[in-house]
Design a protein around this nucleic acid. Structure first.
Length: 496
RNA sequence: GGCGUUAUGGUGUAACUGGUUAACACGUCGCCCUCUCAAGGCGAAGAGUCCGGGUUCGAGCCCCGGUAACGCUACCA
């Protein structure tokens, strides 16, 4: 088994995709990479993997930068700070991937595939129906060079696929790689699909881009989440196809919901923006993340389980990481956050409240909503308490429209949530999205907005809903709607 | 379904790498403090280490076989 030579200077990376709010999982893997680099005088690289143009969110990249910096995980090289291996945004490197795909084509390690997504979908359904593993049938792998020329000449769009050796499922061969936490892991090649490497839109898939970049950026240790284990043989095959040195692989446990499923926004707040805006301290989050998965000796600071980022760097032992997926337990995070809050001096605490809860910017936006709605300044709090309190879950007599049943109302609220999740956070986008939903489901604008108002503000009287939601922020608004639905679900199951 | 990974109280982790009665933290419950709520102090309940075999004087740690959960199974990452 090949692994990176020990003399090579350590270089690690995180490679988030700008597809939405920055994720706690990114912070967790980011932290691990960061401390790995800092422990070994290595470099920590931030690379933006924006090759999925369908899921691309323009504001996402900036949020990733902001929230990682907020946590104190500063990178040595990246799109914004530059570095000797740039560019660090994959959308700016498409030429590189194309060249490398060509190399694979020339050496017969990859081939052009002219199958359409529709054709593939049909095959996949057939395979599933007959209980076969869904796998690319290899149609285009058998194309003659004349057929390929012909397809190319007619301008047929195509992808480029990895030619997994050996050809045919009857021959048995396998790829084995070493996971630094688990030891050797082997995949038979007939369980490895001919993965698409270059999409028909000219962008690479993760697999190609990741391997090419990791090599070109001289990454020595790939520290990423466990969900990548299954695709690692494809990556190893690529390294071998190019004749490159294979890095060390460390697959980290996956953060879980309370029910042990992979952490998801349905069941847990996962947006770092949410944690920041709700008033979690970065120190608490780092501390909490450092607690998960083992790695920290139990006796640090008399076993208080409280430690700083630099203490983590000092004491964390990678080979002690437990690979069972830890539950992201908000209860313990809150306790830790409380501990950090109490450690602040009174002045620091006051400043934290002022900057996070009552910042000038926040207050200014709220004020602008209130000027025409109050007659005495002391009334300011009456209509705005929901901006500062999380204790706003309304009772049915508040949120239930007169002519609607509880079930249909909750179903509609669920639809609202989905619409809000997908919406850009602007007045126009929100308004048209919600109105469109209302038309589809035959909910009047009044019922529609009143329900959402009740959920978000806890009351049927409030400043204008959309403006309020914009000021309150997407992450916190969504969390509020989710928690409302969660609370209602609990109530109804209790009754039954 | 196939492949892969994992498995210690409700949750996060310990257990000198086989050695007393499985430890700590969060949470829960009780008591103290107190005008309330927190914080703080004291205490309690809660696992016999997924299950079944085996090796051994001795197994949470080693071996075999199950089971369950999770992940992957996309022209998403």
């Amino acid at each position: 088994m090949t692994s990176a030579s020990t003399e090579a200077p350590i270089r690690v990376r995180i490679a988030p995709s700008p597809t939405g709010d920055p994720h706690v999982g990114t912070a967790y893997i980011g932290l691990l990479n960061y401390i790995y680099a800092r422990q070994r005088a290595g470099k920590f690289v931030l690379r933006i993997e924006d090759t999925d143009r369908a899921r691309f969110v323009a504001t996402s990249e900036e949020m990733i930068f902001d929230s990682l910096r907020w946590l104190g995980l500063n990178w040595d090289e990246g799109p914004d700070v530059g570095g000797p291996f740039g560019p660090y945004r994959q959308s700016e490197r498409t030429e590189i991937y194309r060249e490398h795909a060509d190399i694979l084509l020339q050496t017969g390690k990859a081939y052009r595939c002219f199958c359409t997504p529709e054709e593939l979908e049909v095959v996949r359904k057939q395979q599933m129906a007959s209980k076969l593993p869904p796998r690319y049938p290899g149609t285009c792998r058998r194309l003659s060079s004349e057929q390929i020329e012909q397809n190319l000449a007619t301008g047929k769009v195509h992808t480029i696929r990895l030619a997994v050796p050996p050809h045919g499922a009857d021959l048995s061969s396998a790829t084995t790689f070493r996971d630094e936490l688990r030891g050797a892991i082997t995949f038979e090649h007939n369980n490895v699909d001919d993965q698409v490497l270059l999409k028909s839109d000219g962008y690479p898939t993760y697999h190609l881009a990741n391997v090419v970049d990791d090599h070109l950026m001289e990454i020595t240790d790939v520290i990423r989440a466990e969900e990548w284990i299954s695709s690692t043989p494809k990556h190893v095959l690529l390294y071998k196809a190019f004749g490159w040195q294979i890095p060390r692989f460390w697959h980290m446990p996956l953060l879980r919901n309370l029910d042990k499923s992979k952490i998801s926004k349905r069941k847990n707040p996962v947006s770092l923006i949410y944690y920041r805006d709700s008033g979690y301290l970065p120190e608490a989050i780092i501390n909490f993340l450092g607690l998960l998965g083992g790695g920290m000796p139990a006796d640090i600071n008399n076993g208080t389980e409280q430690f700083t980022l630099s203490e983590i760097i000092q004491h964390f032992v990678f080979t002690d990481i437990r690979v069972g997926g830890p539950v992201f337990d908000l209860t313990k995070l809150k306790w830790l956050n409380g501990e950090y809050l109490r450690k602040l001096s009174p002045e620091q605490f006051f400043l934290a409240v002022r900057n996070r809860v009552f910042s000038d910017d926040y207050l200014r936006q709220i004020s602008s909503l209130m000027q025409t709605r109050i007659e005495i300044l002391s009334q300011f709090g009456d209509l705005t308490s929901f901006f500062f309190s999380d204790n706003v879950i309304p009772a049915p007599d508040v949120f239930l429209p007169k002519k609607r049943s509880l079930d249909e109302t909750l179903a509609f609220a669920q639809d609202q949530l989905v619409a809000l999740e997908a919406s850009e956070w602007t007045h126009d986008a929100l308004e048209s999205g919600l109105k469109k939903l209302g038309e589809e489901k035959s909910w009047s604008v009044k019922e529609n907005f009143m329900l959402l108002r009740a959920i978000v503000t806890g009351s049927t009287t409030s400043p204008p809903l959309l403006e309020s939601m914009i000021v309150f922020g997407k992450a916190r608004t969504l969390d509020r709607v989710r928690r409302f639905l969660e609370a209602q679900k609990k109530l109804t199951t209790q009754k039954k």
